[in-house]
Every structure is written in C-alpha cells, then in structure tokens.
C-alpha cells in the first residue's frame, strides 16, 4: 500500500543532498573567514559557493517541466 522503497529513496536523497548543499555553503563561509590573504583559500571558497549555486540551479531545472522530458 505504501511504496516503502520510494519513500526510502526520497528520504536518503533529501537528507544527503540537504547535507551536501549546506556543507558546501558553510565550507565557503568558513574559508572566507580566514583573513590570510591567501589566494588559494579564497578561490576554494568561491568554488564552494559556485558548487552550491549549481546545486540550486539544478533545483530550478527540476522545477521547470519545460526543461526536461516528462
């Protein structure tokens, strides 16, 4: 009656990707908080933000039905 398989997939994907998205953004903030003037660290921080932004854009892609078949 209840599709437990589908539920477990939804639960695992939700928990996993929420953790990944938040961890990326948090890592970006943490790296920016180091005021060392080190270009490498700043760059890594921006990479984190860009990855988090890509995750969000993937969300937009999923929301808009016109962008993907059915």
């Amino acid at each position: 009656m209840i599709d437990w398989g589908a539920f477990l997939v939804v639960a695992a994907v939700s928990i996993g990707s929420a953790a990944a998205l938040v961890a990326l953004f948090a890592a970006g903030l943490r790296l920016l908080a180091v005021d060392s003037g080190n270009v490498g660290i700043r760059l890594t921080a921006y990479v984190c933000f860009v990855l988090a932004a890509l995750g969000t854009l993937y969300g937009v892609y999923l929301i808009i039905p016109a962008l993907h078949p059915a």
Partner: peptide, 27 residues
C-alpha cells in the same frame, strides 16, 4: 520526520563547519 532529520543533519554540519570559538565567525 524526513524533513526534520534532513534539517537536523544539515544544521549540525553547518555549525560544525563554521565553528570558530575564538575568532569572528561568518555565520
């Protein structure tokens, strides 16, 4: 249940990653 576990894990992670007990944190 799903949402609160996801948010709980995410919040814990966010606090853990941005933890800076002495200097300024950028939360």
């Amino acid at each position: 249940v799903v949402a609160s576990v996801a948010a709980f894990v995410a919040t814990r992670l966010a606090y853990r990653i941005t933890r800076r007990p002495v200097e300024k944190n950028h939360r």
